[in-house]
Amino acid sequence: MSQPLLELRNLTTVFPTRRGLVRAVDGLDLTVREGEKLGIVGESGSGKSVTLLSILRLVPPPGRIVAGDVLFRGESLLAKSSSEMRRVRGRKIAMIFQDPMTTLNPVFRVGEQIRESLRIHGLVDGRGRARRRAEIERVIQVLNDVGIPYPEESLRRYPHEFSGGMQQRAIIAIALSCEPQLLLADEPTTALDVTIQAQILDLLERINRERGMGIILVTHNLGVVAEFCDTIAIMYAGQIMEKGATEEVTTEPLHPYTRGLLRCLPRIYGKREKIRPIPGLVPDLATLPPGCPFAPRCDVVRPECREDRRIPLKEVEPGRWVRCLLY
């Protein structure tokens, strides 16, 4: 593996609310290498999606990034002007979303929405009609790449004429159209049927393999990540609790939260085990407990876990990090 493609350093994104400042992303450190597939796993509200939006600097106001940095190939994205940032969005880093039904603009034809990306970044040379033809050719090619049948006809369809799986493919086509180096995938399979989920993951896998595109896959489904990602980061209350190579994390989880998540996975093969949910609820980010945010739900909690200090993320083995006082 080579130089880092993306590096998040102490990234902190907050949302002011009536009940106080919510640190949706709280001092996040993450690295994605070229062609790496990183999975970020966590329950709803753990700050996964905000992390992705922070990378593109698209955090919806009043949310804002207050600390840290986002380095893309060593260049700070936070230091860029908004027009420079626009040249990164879609072109260098693309994003796909959770709910394909609401992510495509209902009033434009699918082909038009893919073509828009090409036009924004001026990727197709030529003038007038020749350029238009070249753009449409490129759209057909991308539609082909993502496995949309009859691309020539499909590009003239409106989003509502597509099934959910086809819509997600179209969104991936938009993302691929400008050949970005990094793809941010925000729960891309959550809204889809299981069989379609597998197809979409296969597609992403193939894109990663053939184009060497780095992927950050955000999901609450540990099973999806275990199957798909090289490395995995477990997020809780805006912080990373554990990260490391997927195999290690899933077979030998260190953090009690990771262990809890793994126990929630139903098994089809092997010994029948009762699913044991993690007790309690995701904490309210505006009123976090002192010390470890997971302490109230932890089954091995110790008194010092509740002391008012931030628990450091420790490298226990090379490439294996955990934020827990047990280690």
Binding site: G90, A94, M95, T102, T103, E116, S117, I174
Partner: peptide, 22 residues
């Protein structure tokens, strides 16, 4: 607030067109 507006921004579209077009 719709997702397709976020997508338009994530494509790198200028804000004026995000609002007027999408």
């Amino acid at each position: 607030r719709a997702d397709y507006i976020t997508l338009a921004r994530a494509k790198g579209q200028v804000e004026f067109l995000v609002i007027m077009k999408h």
